[in-house]
């Protein structure tokens, strides 16, 4: 995602961007909503990486978290429920020079848009895909989502969720050509930032699941984990997200995990008795669809000449 075309933006190359250059409308999420943390981390990332606002696009679906682009002062595409990934893919295919971030909720990503999640992972188009997972449908007022814990009560399943929760990390790791799979949590801002930064710097489709609390509907799900860092394993590796210095003491459980080791990653992801944060898998050697499909541009006259040659084959 590091490429940018200077011809497209004749702005002063020395211009330095500050936090307020990325701040859009005032966020209207509930107080205590995990989305606020992600927004702050994303804005910090853009400052850190000095991304040009006009060359950056945040694409979202529908749901609480999908209001995200409105609160950024970049280009934003707040489209349809579940369909952020195809839009983002179209943008990158046509304009690989743009920095593309996708913000989805759990309903967006692994329910109504699940097909796109599988295939976007396989396309491995260079973008950051964040799944803001609060385990519930919030905007529509507390319906069970695929990641709702089994037995958890909602308005649609008042007797408790009937099925075991879907494991998005394990599932993503099962998709051919997955190149970056990470998990972080909104209540650990330093880890959240470090993970988003690693995702941004990854060349390929970077899938980041952000564990989140919905203060209104699922405040209790991660309550124990928030209070007790012992419950969390930090995946630690220089090729993934090294555990930030500030967290090394607070989070005592560090698991040395080489993100190139796919089978170890799958085992770590499958074991849901522990909450594991960090980069499960990362491989920059995998083919990227927008690169595979990239073609040189042609002038109009050039195209007319080639088209005439093609039409000759159909001449009577």
């Amino acid at each position: 995602m590091s490429h940018s075309c200077s011809l497209l933006a004749p702005v002063d190359e020395d211009q330095e961007f500050h936090l307020d250059d990325y701040e859009g409308a005032r966020a209207r999420w509930c107080p205590g909503c995990g989305d606020h943390s992600v927004l702050t981390a994303a804005q910090r990332l853009l400052v850190d990486e000095q991304l040009k606002p006009e060359e950056t696009v945040f694409v979202s679906g529908i749901g609480c978290s999908s209001r995200f682009p409105h609160y950024m002062k970049t280009y934003g595409f707040h489209g349809l429920h579940g369909r952020a990934l195809p839009v983002a893919t179209g943008i990158k295919l046509h304009r690989p020079d743009l920095n593309v971030f996708v913000v989805m909720g759990d309903g967006d990503c692994v329910s109504i848009g699940a097909g796109h999640w599988v295939h976007a992972t396989r396309y491995n188009v260079d973008m950051v895909a964040m799944m803001l997972d609060n385990n519930i449908y919030g905007l529509t007022k507390m319906q069970t989502s695929p990641t709702t814990p089994q037995g958890y009560k909602s308005n649609t399943q008042p007797q408790g969720s009937w099925l075991p929760a879907l494991n998005p990390i394990e599932a993503t790791l099962g998709i051919t050509n997955a190149s970056f799979v990470a998990q972080t949590a909104e209540w650990i801002p330093a880890h959240l930032f470090a993970t988003l930064q690693a995702a941004y710097r990854h060349n390929g489709f970077a899938f980041v699941r952000v564990l989140q609390r919905c203060p209104v509907f699922t405040a209790d799900i991660y309550m124990d984990a928030v209070r007790n860092p012992e419950m969390i394993d930090m995946l630690d590796h220089p090729d993934g997200v090294p555990v930030p210095e500030s967290l090394r003491q607070i989070y005592p459980n560090h698991l040395r995990h080489d993100p190139l080791n796919l089978s170890a990653a799958r085992d770590l992801a499958a074991d849901t008795s522990r909450i594991r944060l960090g980069v499960f898998f990362r491989d920059e050697g995998l083919p990227r669809y927008e690169e595979t499909r990239h073609l040189p541009a042609h002038t109009a006259d050039d195209k007319i000449r080639i088209l005439n040659e093609e039409l000759d084959q159909y001449a009577v």
């Binding site: 696009v57 595409f77 369909r83 990934l85 839009v87 943008i91 046509h94």
Partner: peptide
């Protein structure tokens, strides 16, 4: 969706 994304961006 891909067509719309491409159209939107150029």
């Amino acid at each position: 969706g891909v067509a719309i994304g491409a159209s939107y961006s150029g």
